[in-house]
Design a protein around this nucleic acid. Structure first.
Length: 548
RNA sequence: GUGCCUGUAGCUCAGCUGGAUAGAGCGUUGGACUCCGGAUCCAAAGGUCGGAGGUUCGAAUCCUCUCAGGCACGCCA
């Protein structure tokens, strides 16, 4: 019964690139970033399960204005050097979170500072110290902080392409040539965009999107088109890479403009998923249209914007954060997270709270366990709670974040799924202790004997089919989730399977069953359910604890 | 102004490639085996599916209009 349907899992692409996380390296990660990473990572896991070759990229905008703002803050407001930053106590990403908010408030009140900010930006672009050195120090250290936060959730990447490398290797120049050559853009001679290179928009013939400004610099979308071309191997230019971090013997690579050797092949995908929130839908459309205008129809069709709604803050969570809402903000149902305002729930803070709560529960229930083991389990529960929370909502619905809801361990939550897994593990552990039977000994009856014992009640037969058919639909659910990019389906499926198992388990004794034939049958049902459930949790990145 | 998204139980959300009495969690109320983990299970109460029209044998689901909320639309990123 476990082999049925295997054929449905087959790769359809040569190579798939998923770009997700993409946090500006100038401040701590927040709950909005967590939703992005959880969705992207789950997509990666599901596609790999399907048999696809997947490359996960986390794009680092290390030369953008957000980093410049923080560099400005360190130089002008804090008067700090790189050496000072090395000695800064506490979490560096948290310090930058506050500093970025300070700078964002400072700049509008000090228009004269704009000149200095522009100067910093130019000097970073040209690699001039101390600005350049500071920007590199800040962005690299923040990236490490982000990677550490994501590692807490089991989210990892293959490669970190950097904006700075794209600039140094002049990816844009190459893309610009292509765009001009194939007449995908043209120089506007009159009108408000006079002097700019623009792209005509398909949907709205009247509108044109500026790709190159009248001063000759490229816009955000322009750079994105170049990057998208590279992902498909269409740019005719490539990065170099060097190791950035290690985990489990695997190397995470980061792009570099300096020629290196010995790195794996990155890029050159046949399909690309960009995990970006829905507010960027318009820009993503322009990027795809850019490919189409270049006559890369096939690649345009395989460029997927995996869009999702934002995570916002409930009025209750706002007051818990100590945020004083303005009169205008007061009657709103929710408020957007804002890095500029320093308004948001930091990812590590939320994870810390989840871990602390889980640890308290474990200590209450199982005070004899070793401290290390308790902490490990608390981490697993925190991860499970958070990842399930980020997946259970349909991607088109705004998550109005509420602490009480996010910190819940009961009902439709990750810990409920984990608890179910723990109960299953416990049954098989006791089976071994009491009867010396290993899980692998639980196999269908040999010699063509009936699977369902004779004389099984109609009710139990019906419950058996209900549970087993649900368990068997995992693959179908995964494929459906991937096709719709709707991982709430997968989450609901896992939850339903747990509910069905818990109901079955409540009604039918397993270890205490004296009829050995019936016991063997029920164990077989449980083994199947357990395997499918573990697979489902694995795809969602929810760790299955042995005990909790 | 134009485009996209959302509106379903007190609250948070599923269901939306049309199909039978509209589901779940939380909350409320009442229960559960001396036995395999009570982070569990069972039950009850709770809904004119924002509103109006239309298509259909049949609409929460499709179409039109409308009301309410959100987001986007820059020579910012």
């Amino acid at each position: 019964m476990r082999t049925a349907g295997r054929t449905s899992l087959a790769p359809e692409e040569g190579k798939i690139i998923i770009e997700h996380t993409n946090i500006n390296p100038n401040k701590a990660a927040h709950i909005g970033h967590l939703r992005n990473a959880c969705l992207g990572d789950t997509l990666a896991r599901c596609l790999r399960y399907k048999g696809e070759k997947v490359e996960v990229q986390n794009y680092i905008d290390d030369t953008g204005v957000q980093v410049v703002d923080v560099v400005f803050g360190f130089m002008e407001l804090e008067k700090k050097t790189v050496e000072d930053l090395e000695r800064l106590p506490g979490k560096f990403d948290y310090f930058c979170w506050d500093l970025y908010a300070r700078v964002s408030a400072y700049l509008p009140k000090h228009p004269e500072a704009q000149a200095r900010k522009s100067e910093i930006m130019k000097r970073i672009e040209h690699g001039l110290d101390p600005e350049y050195g500071l920007s590199r120090y800040v962005s690299r250290r923040i990236v490490k902080a982000h990677l550490a936060t994501m590692a807490r959730l089991g989210v990892f990447y293959d490669v970190l392409p950097c904006e700075s490398t794209i600039l140094h290797l002049k990816f844009w120049d190459k893309a610009f040539e292509l765009l001009k050559e194939r007449q995908a853009i043209y120089l506007a001679a009159k009108g408000e965009n006079s002097g700019c290179w623009v792209m005509r928009l398909e949907e709205d013939e009247e509108r044109e999107k500026v790709i190159v400004r009248s001063d000759g610099t490229v816009t955000y979308v322009g750079k994105d088109i170049a990057y998208q071309l590279w992902k498909f191997g269409l740019l005719g230019r490539d990065f170099f890479y060097e190791p950035f971090a290690e985990r489990d013997g695997r190397t995470l690579w980061i792009s570099t403009p300096t020629p290196t050797a010995g790195f794996p092949a990155f890029g050159g995908a046949t399909k690309v998923y960009n995990v970006i929130d829905t507010r960027q839908s318009y820009l993503q459309k322009v990027v795809v249209q850019g490919l189409r205008s270049l006559k890369f129809e096939a690649q345009a069709a395989k460029s997927v914007h995996f869009s999702y709604e934002m995570v916002a803050l409930s009025p209750k969570s706002l007051s818990e954060l100590g945020y004083a809402a303005s009169d205008e903000e007061k009657d709103r149902a929710f408020l957007e997270v804002s890095g500029r305002k320093g308004l948001g729930v930091k990812a590590d803070d939320l994870l810390d709270r989840l871990e602390a709560k889980a640890l308290a529960e474990i200590e209450k229930r199982d005070p004899d366990r070793a401290g290390d083991e308790r902490r490990k389990t608390a981490r697993d529960i925190a991860t499970g709670a958070l990842r399930y929370f980020m997946l259970k909502f349909a991607r088109n619905s705004v998550i109005v974040f509420d602490f009480e809801e996010a910190l819940s361990f009961e009902g439709e939550t990750g810990p409920y799924l984990q608890y179910t897994v723990v109960r299953l593990a416990s049954i098989f552990r006791k089976l071994k202790e009491r009867f010396g039977l290993a899980e692998s000994d639980i196999v269908p009856p040999a010699g063509g004997a009936a699977l369902i014992p004779e004389g099984l009640s109609d009710q139990e037969t019906a419950d058996f089919w209900d549970l087993i058919l649900t368990a068997a639909s995992l693959e179908e659910e995964v494929l459906r989730s991937v096709a719709a990019l709707e991982f709430s389906h997968l989450a609901k499926f896992a939850f339903l399977l747990c509910q069905k198992f818990n109901g079955y388990y409540h009604k039918y004794p397993i270890l205490a069953e004296e009829n050995l034939e019936v016991r063997a049958f029920r164990l077989l049902v449980l083994r199947t359910a357990k395997e499918q459930l573990h697979a489902a949790l694995g795809l969602m990145g929810i760790p299955p604890p042995e005990r909790m």
